[in-house]
Design a protein around this nucleic acid. Structure first.
Length: 332
DNA sequence: AACACGTGGTG
DNA sequence: TCACCAAGTGT
């Protein structure tokens, strides 16, 4: 019985609730839209464990969207450093200012969807969780759960949408969405699903097939090429020269060590202070850090002792760590 | 419709 | 070591 699926799922979620640490339990009054928006954006392609402490820092520093909107770009980007997918932080800044300007968050999915950095998933999640609207919330967990319930190995977006729509309740669709995502994260996992613990297994075609992990079929992966880069260590009086990367593209807007564009060809061997290998989404980078006294352009002298406050993304934080722990003499 | 876009945890 | 993958969005 389809009508029962949502009820059983919600009951399971209430009993074994694993909701986000900062979110009130299922059935509570609707949470602050600002907090829902901020955490949902942070959670895009990012684990709960990684988000939790960063979310708390953001909220402590900027308790309202008005406070966030008033913050300088570099403060927000610096607070985001290490979280990855930095376009999210750039969109967060733009979105926060737009929302503060208009006096608050819109309360419908269609209006939320127009905000920068708010796509189909996030708009539906905010509408359902923060505003109690019925919305069909679809993330990769929900897709997997739906594909398995229906036994679809190669589902289309519209098949998935229809499947989720059919079981989304009119009331508490926000709790329902969180229950679906929670189920996907803890029981209906991509690999080795724990069907024995699943409240929906009696309705599940994939379980009935005996090989639930084959639904949906995993996508083919592409090889990662290696690229090469040089970063300059320009040191003076216990400081090093940092720059801000161009505001678009990879690590856009983030603080960085200066250096030329990265290349596909391995550079000629030279004396390096340190080397780091860093894996991005679609390529791996081998970055060599070389000492330099080149006359700097735009940038600033960052005290070596306070490098951790520079808001460096992980690539450059690792590069700096590699130099500082290399034993090379640094006048810090 | 593909592809760009980060990072850390896990097996 | 390494592949997989995470409460996706923008172009």
């Amino acid at each position: 019985m389809r009508a029962n699926v949502a009820g059983r799922l919600l009951q399971h979620y209430v009993d074994k609730s694993r909701s986000l640490p900062w979110r009130s339990p299922p059935g509570s009054p609707a949470p602050d839209p600002y907090r829902v928006w901020l955490s949902e954006v942070m959670l895009q392609q990012t684990t709960v464990a990684a988000v939790a402490p960063r979310f708390e820092r953001f909220i402590a520093r900027w308790p309202t969207v008005q406070a966030l909107a008033a913050a300088p770009d570099e403060d927000v980007l610096g607070e985001w450093a290490g979280l990855g997918y930095y376009a999210r932080a750039r969109n967060l800044i733009a979105c926060g200012r737009e929302v503060a300007e208009r006096g608050g968050f819109p309360d419908t999915e269609a209006e939320l969807r127009k905000l920068p950095g708010v796509g189909d998933y996030t708009a539906a999640a905010i509408a359902a969780i923060a505003f109690g609207r019925r919305a069909v919330v679809i993330d990769s967990n929900v897709e997997r759960v739906a594909a398995r319930l229906q036994g679809l190995a190669n589902p289309t977006k519209s098949q998935l949408r229809e499947a989720v729509e059919a079981i989304t309740p009119d009331e508490r669709s926000g709790d329902f969405a969180q229950a679906m995502m929670d189920l996907g994260a803890t029981i209906c996992r991509p690999r080795s699903p724990l069907c024995a613990d699943c409240p929906l297994r009696s309705d599940c075609a994939a379980f009935a097939s005996g090989s639930p992990e084959l639904f949906p079929k995993p996508k083919a992966k592409r090889r990662k090429p290696v690229r090469y880069g040089i970063a300059r260590w320009i040191e003076r009086d216990g400081t090093i020269w940092l720059v801000r990367r161009p505001s678009r593209g990879l690590l856009g807007g983030m603080a960085a060590l200066p250096g030329p564009d990265w290349t596909d060809e391995k550079p000629e061997p030279r004396e390096v202070l340190a080397q780091v290998r860093h894996v991005f989404t679609h390529f791996a980078l081998e970055l060599s850090i070389v000492r330099s006294d080149e006359a700097p352009g735009d940038g600033w002298w960052q005290p070596i002792r306070s490098l951790d406050q520079a808001g460096l993304p992980t690539l450059y934080r690792r590069a700096v760590d590699a130099v500082l722990s290399s034993g090379v003499k640094i006048a810090a």
